[in-house]
Design a protein around this nucleic acid. Structure first.
Lengths: 237, 237
DNA sequence: AAGGTAGGTGTACGGCGTACACCTGTCAAG
DNA sequence: CTTGACAGGTGTACGCCGTACACCTACCTT
């Protein structure tokens, strides 16, 4: 009857509860240590119980992605397409920063999930409303790629680490180890040297938010220029 | 003595042979079905034999990445930085198309491998030679992200599929299933509708190479504009 | 009262990465 | 020529993984 009490105490499982627990577990322990067994344990249940609510692990991941994407604020209508897109993309970025494993998870799925398609469809809609031809909108989607969803693949992205083996390695050194600096002088010159071309002071790392917006605006401005001049890819090989 | 002949027949293992076999196996069977055991079998050897040549599976993946990146043609000096970068990035893209698993593998490593750092260092060097401030070069590296290495994360990238579960699903439908088209009208309008705004003819899919170059040039041109006007991020918050 | 059904359980299987002890052939030093 | 170190291939074993499948149980409907 102790077990009975236990059984009664815990809320009944549901697909939603499973997904939320999975997201929480991935957030705090890293995606690579999320297993059906650990998740079941977290929920006080035997592993196979999960399979009554998700078909398999892949489907679990799809569901987790949908939970995350669902957290992104809806597109707010705006006469200025650029402002509308920019705002929602930055909102998406905030969400993905809360769930650092999600970017890689989204990329590695073969097909976009319904929630992702919803998100993207709305973005295209905003472009069409803003006067984009389907042709230009098409190319823009490709050009923006995953940045459309608030993230970019940077080759040395400190925040990427957070998605694995737990959150927040307290402080990665940020300064280039001396030996590497000798071998990769240009990278060393660049590392952490933003906004002070003047001095020999190397420091402060770099501001990921700034970098993201830099790239975003570079693209949006270029796109705006094409749109304004009625660019079309009609004269393709 | 049959076994003896067998033993003599096969070339001795070496780190290089292991890495090449791993790359070949990933190319033809997909990265997710590359296991130490299968790789060993391919090499006619017991799984643990591999561990005399690579420390563990992660290090194997790092080595595979270095093999792939090593296939990219070196940067050819050019007075025109834009042409130099563009050329090498497109060369990188060709290599990554031959090894479709590599993009995801590169992204999912925590630290860039030496070969990747070499590659990137040379690219930064070309920018510096082209008159970029370290500051601008820094931001450009972030803005280009993985595109610097010849790939981009597209959310519906047909070529991505090739990296998993074997190469070349013969032909994904390319046309939007009707039900999805109703739910995601804007995406449906865009899918495969490049270069024919005019007609109701939906078809032909889209030209990945064109899309890649579109995005690449959009970025390079925007960057060039900043460089020409001596852009600096000095006035940051 | 009967039976269907939704949802949690227990057992088991095959695959994975890899630790660890072992064997064997080669080659240098004595 | 012997010896012994060492590089490199072997065999066994462990713990983890996803999940198939048979079961059991509580509840709802008729």
């Amino acid at each position: 009857m102790a077990e009975q009490a236990e059984t009664l105490r815990r809320a009944p499982l549901s697909r939603d509860r499973v997904l939320r627990a999975a997201v929480a577990l991935a957030d705090e322990a890293g995606i690579e240590s999320l297993s059906m067994r650990k998740l079941a344990q977290e929920l006080g249940v035997v592993p196979m119980a999960l399979y009554k609510h998700v078909a398999n692990k892949d489907e679990l991941l799809d569901g987790m992605i949908d939970v995350v994407v669902g957290e992104i604020e809806p597109l707010v209508p705006d006469a200025d397409w650029k402002r509308a897109l920019r705002r929602r993309i930055l909102a998406a970025r905030q969400v993905l920063l809360r769930h650092p494993w999600a970017a890689l998870a989204i990329e590695s799925r073969l097909d976009a999930t319904p929630a992702v398609l919803d998100y993207l469809d709305a973005m295209v809609g905003a472009m069409r409303d803003g006067g984009f031809s389907t042709d230009l909108a098409h190319h823009v989607m490709h050009a923006m790629g995953s940045r459309m969803l608030g993230f970019s693949q940077e080759l040395f992205d400190t925040s990427r680490r957070a998605g694995r083996s737990g959150p927040a390695d307290p402080e990665p050194p940020a300064t280039f180890p001396a030996e590497a600096a000798a071998r990769f002088p240009h990278l060393a010159a660049i590392a952490g040297a933003a906004s002070h071309d003047d001095g020999s002071v190397v420091g402060e790392g770099c501001d990921d938010q700034f970098e993201f917006e830099f790239a975003l605006d570079l693209l949006l401005d270029g796109i705006d220029r094409l749109r304004a001049q009625g660019w079309s890819s009609a004269r393709r090989p």
